[in-house]
Computed example of a mutant assay.
Amino acid sequence: MTEFPLPRALRTVDQPMAFTPDEMLRGALIAWGTFLALLAAGLVVLGLGTALSSGRLDLGGVGPFIMLVLFVLLLAAIASGVVMSFGLLLVRAIARSLRTVRSFTAHLAVYSFLGIFVGFLYLAVVTSGRPFGVMEFLPGGAVIAYPALAAAVALPFGWWWTARRALREDAGTTPPRRPQRDRDAVAEDRATN
């Protein structure tokens, strides 16, 4: 019987999955940027779908639509930035408790759950405590629910991207993001020049 190896993403790693503050911030920024990109793409797709389904594709409405998308993205960037700032405290505690867990799958599951939880909280706030009743807001239910979906995808993706990069840097297969400078050598070079 032939055994099929697990994909690399589902294997355990040889070392503890510790993190640095830079890696945590990098993951948060990647998740934030991914959330905003998914939100923008979703708004454009939903806007195009609405325009095509109504049978009226008016080019005069493109400018106002772009302004609306940019306004929504600005509001979403500010709100999600505030949420991310406070969420980093929770993520730091979660990351510390998981630093000895070597299973990539366990980490991905925890951050996926965290993304779903953030999306659920968003829906609870937007729907006045009835997150499962979001589709009662039809036809705008999809527009209301899309940020929750974007958050549920962005959080685990931010962790995965950052963990993958950090593990590659630790293994020496990817150069470090910022070259490490020896401060003593820099000071000695300045003194001799």
Rank of each mutant, 00 (worst) to 15 (best):
T2G: 09
T2H: 15
F4M: 13
L6A: 15
P7Y: 05
P7K: 02
R11T: 08
R11V: 06
V13F: 01
V13E: 12
V13C: 10
V13W: 00
Q15K: 01
P16D: 15
P16T: 01
T20F: 07
P21E: 08
M24Q: 10
G27P: 02
T34K: 07
L39F: 12
L39H: 09
A40R: 05
A41I: 13
A41F: 08
A41S: 12
G42R: 06
G42E: 01
V44D: 07
V45C: 06
L46C: 05
L48F: 13
G49K: 02
T50L: 11
T50C: 03
L52H: 07
S54W: 05
G55N: 04
G61R: 14
G63M: 02
P64G: 07
I66S: 11
M67L: 14
M67E: 15
V69S: 09
F71T: 14
L75H: 11
A76S: 12
A79S: 12
S80W: 10
S80Y: 09
G81P: 04
V83L: 14
M84D: 13
M84S: 08
S85R: 12
G87W: 04
G87T: 06
L88F: 04
L89C: 05
A93C: 05
A93N: 03
I94H: 00
A95L: 12
R96Q: 14
S97R: 15
R99G: 00
R99W: 11
T100F: 14
V101E: 13
T105V: 10
L108W: 06
L108M: 15
L108N: 00
L108E: 04
L108D: 11
A109N: 01
Y111R: 02
Y111M: 12
L114D: 00
G115A: 10
F117L: 15
F120A: 08
F120P: 06
Y122A: 01
L123K: 07
A124D: 08
V125R: 09
F132K: 00
G133Y: 07
E136F: 03
G140C: 03
G140R: 12
A142D: 08
V143E: 05
I144W: 12
A145W: 12
A145C: 05
Y146P: 00
P147Y: 00
P147E: 02
A148Y: 02
A150E: 01
A151T: 03
A152V: 00
V153A: 13
W160Q: 03
W160E: 07
W161C: 09
T162I: 03
A163V: 05
R165F: 13
A166M: 11
A166I: 02
A166L: 04
R168D: 12
R168L: 04
R168G: 07
E169L: 00
E169P: 01
G172W: 11
T173M: 03
T174A: 15
P176T: 09
R178D: 06
R178I: 12
R178E: 05
V186P: 00
V186M: 10
A187I: 12
E188P: 04
A191R: 15
